Every structure is written in C-alpha cells, then in structure tokens.
Computed example of a mutant assay.
Amino acid sequence: MQPLDKRRTTVVGVAALSLAAIALTTPAHAATTITVAADGSGNYTTIQAALAAASSDTVINIKPGTYHGQVSVPSSKPGITLQGTTGNATDVVITGNTPQSTAGAAGSATVLNMARNTTVKGMTIANTYAAHDSQALALYAGGDRQVYRNVRLLGYQDTFLSWGGTGSSQVRQYVYQSYIEGAVDFIYGNGALVIDSTTIRSLDRGSTNNGYITAAATNSRNPYGILITRSTLASSAAARTVALGRCWHAGGAADAIGQVLIRDSTLGAHIRQTGAWQDMGGFSWKTCRFSEYNNSGAGASTGTSDRPQMSSATAANFTPQKYLAGSDGWNPVQ
C-alpha cells in the first residue's frame, strides 16, 4: 500500500478547517418577521395583509390595537406565528360580529386557522354576536399541530371549534394558560384538543339552564377527543345550572361518539350534579365517552350516577401527551 500524500492531506485538512470556521461564523437562517400596527407604524396595518405577504414560517408581530374583520390563515402557509408584541392578551384584539346563520361556520369565525404548525399567542379573539338563535365562532381551528398560548377566546355559542373534517381524520391543538368564554357548546368539534392550565368561564344566561361547556363529535375510531386538564371552570351563574357537555353527533353521524375527559381541574358551583352530561339531537349522552378524574371544587362530583369517573389505571393513558402524540410523537405540552 502506498503511503498517504502528506501534502494532499494538509490541503484537505485546511479546507475542512475553513469550512468549519465558515459554519461557525455564518448565522443560522432567521425566520422572516413582519410587523402589523393599526396606527401605521409597522409593515402593514391589517393582519390579513401581512398574511397575504407572508411565506411559510413567518413570524407576524402585532402591535396593540383592535383589528376588525376575519383573519384567515390558509393551509398553504404552515408554520406561521401570530403574536402580540406586549405579551398582554388584552392589548391585541381581533374581533368580528358574524353569525353562522349568514356565513356558515368557517365564514363566521373571527379567526379561521387552517394551517399546520401554527402558533398564536398574546391576543384576544372575539365574536361579539350574542343572539340566542345562531352559532358565531371566535376561532375555527382546522389545521394539525396548532398551539395557542396566552390567548383569550370570547364568544357566546360555539366559541371554539376544533375540526378535522368528516370521518376519522383528526387535527390536534394545544391550548395553554389561556381564557375561553361562552354559554352554549362553546368548546366543540372532533379534533384531539387539549386545554391546559386555562380558565373556562360559562356566561350567565339568567336561566335554570345556563348552557353546556363542550360538544364533542369525536369519531368512534379515535380514542382521544377533548381533554380539559389543570384548569378552572368558573361562572357567576347560579349553582348547578351549567352542564359539562352534551353529545354531538355531527350531521346525525352514528359514528360521532364524542370523547371528553375533565381531569385535575377545579370546578365551580355552577356545574350540575344531576344532568352534568346532556343528550343532544335525539342521541343519549350515554352513547358518548364522557368522564372525569381527580377534580376538586364545589362543582366536583359528589357521587351521582351520571358523573362517570375514570379509574387511575385508565387515566394513566389519558394524558395531554397521549392526546397529542398522533403517529409523529408531537409533544408541545408545557
């Protein structure tokens, strides 16, 4: 075997060192950043204009202000981040007043987010339409692997929809340290949705029936639907007048066997003891998969027969990580 050419080895070594030096001194690719300001001090005055100009993985910083009209994030723009610049969710308000009766679910949503891998944080999303005759969405979450942190979702009926379309196709969303408000079915859909460390406030309708918090339509082939964990269920409504949820067989689909678990949370006195889970559309709540685990507070179960409790052994497989893992191991849990 011929000995190695030392001169060639030296040249190769210098080249390798030079490449290493370049790699160390070249900055990593930075995400494109766009600033929105209603007062004209940013790149755009509307969020939708910024989204139209944005490419995938763009960070859109939103300065304080009230922004009217629908914000739509299309599925063709994954990885977008929408964030308020102050970190105070009340400083940035996206608001609309469109009911589902005139525009459909997607058209009524103040924010329609259909993109994968998006992050929304530090803002309020509101639909101020509060008539009792129509749903009116604040947020329609239709993309997979979406994260919402420090957001306020305000509505009356159908505030927050997690929806992956018909059949067993499922999207995943994680909501953390946020606030969700409504009266009727205001957290609903067929997605794998985890609501963690969040305040969920039921509005007072001044009735002996002050509404329903959830309306799950989880496909029977999907083990996980809506999980509310480490959260607080609050209201100024009268004691025992708010239901935890009802069984939504979307479109009358027999295989929409909703799954909801409320665990490790504090439940206010407004939660019903009898009738905590309700029928809907001719389907008994017992056709769905409703349960609780390790809750506390005045509204926690006192042992009534219609407050199913999950066992500790089963609860070990119903964690936020399990709900969101899917086939790719996604884990945004804080």
Results as ranks from 00 to 15, higher is better:
Leu4Pro: 13
Arg7Glu: 13
Thr9Arg: 14
Val14Glu: 04
Leu19Phe: 14
Ile22Cys: 12
Leu24Pro: 00
Thr25Phe: 12
Thr25Ile: 15
Ile34Glu: 01
Ala37Gln: 07
Asn43Ser: 14
Tyr44Thr: 06
Thr45Asp: 10
Ala50Thr: 08
Asp57His: 13
Ile62Leu: 02
Ile62Gln: 02
Thr66Glu: 13
His68Gly: 07
Ser72Gln: 12
Val73Ile: 15
Ser75Met: 09
Pro78Trp: 08
Thr90Ala: 15
Val92Tyr: 03
Val92Phe: 02
Gly96Gln: 03
Ser101Arg: 01
Gly104Cys: 07
Thr119Asn: 10
Val120Glu: 07
Met123Phe: 11
Thr124Met: 07
His132Met: 05
Gln135Trp: 10
Leu137Tyr: 15
Tyr140Pro: 05
Tyr148Ile: 01
Arg149Pro: 00
Arg152Gly: 02
Leu153Met: 14
Tyr174Leu: 09
Tyr174Asp: 08
Gln177Leu: 10
Ser178Phe: 02
Tyr179Gly: 03
Tyr179Thr: 08
Ile180Leu: 15
Ile180Ser: 05
Ala183Phe: 06
Ile187Ser: 09
Thr199Asn: 13
Thr199Cys: 00
Gly211Tyr: 09
Gly211Asn: 10
Gly211Ile: 08
Ala216Gln: 12
Ser220Phe: 00
Arg221Ser: 15
Gly225Leu: 04
Arg230Cys: 00
Arg230Met: 00
Ala234Leu: 12
Ala238Cys: 02
Gly245Phe: 05
Gly245Ser: 11
Ala250Lys: 12
Gly252Cys: 06
Asp255Phe: 00
Leu267Trp: 06
Asp279Ala: 13
Gly282His: 06
Glu292Phe: 01
Ser296Pro: 00
Ala300Ile: 05
Ser301Gln: 04
Phe318Thr: 04
Pro320Glu: 09
Lys322Ala: 15
Ala325His: 05
Gly329Asn: 14
